[in-house]
Amino acid sequence: MARKLKRLRNYSEALLPAEHRAQRDKLPLRISWSTWLYPTMIILSIVAASLVTFVFSGIVVRPFLLMWFLFVCPGMTVVRFFQLNEVVIEWLLAFALSIALDTFIAGILLYAGWWSPIHILVILIGFCLIGAIMQFVVIYSSSI
């Protein structure tokens, strides 16, 4: 049903006159369950990544949870502000930007002579935390 509605929306998007599109684009953010989902997912990922790194470091799922966090969260923190409404592109961009951000932070610390994977992770966690909180703020201010 959701896919049908999305196709219908794309179809109507193509037929919508430009002036209507411009008016619609000025409207505030449309709030749906998925709008809340992403910052919640980022917060939960931060909690999981922190737990498996600092508390249960010997746990079997550690590589998977950390890979999930490193490959998705930093990018998704940024991409959600783009409001692309294209799931595939959003996830692809999140993946690409996550790798780029992870590498830039790691690279800066390495060239500065402060190489420490734990510190890199802490910076990324902080970045994602701020981004997720900002997403909540934007959603909350749009919903009132």
Partner: peptide, 27 residues
């Protein structure tokens, strides 16, 4: 925790390997 551009050509474009090193160690 460093790169040596004189040792290997790879270290002149080390982005991928820096990411790999971080990922491998942290995971």
């Amino acid at each position: 925790g460093t790169v040596d551009p004189y040792l290997e050509a790879y270290f002149n474009w080390p982005g991928f390997f820096i990411f790999s090193a971080f990922l491998t160690r942290i995971a």
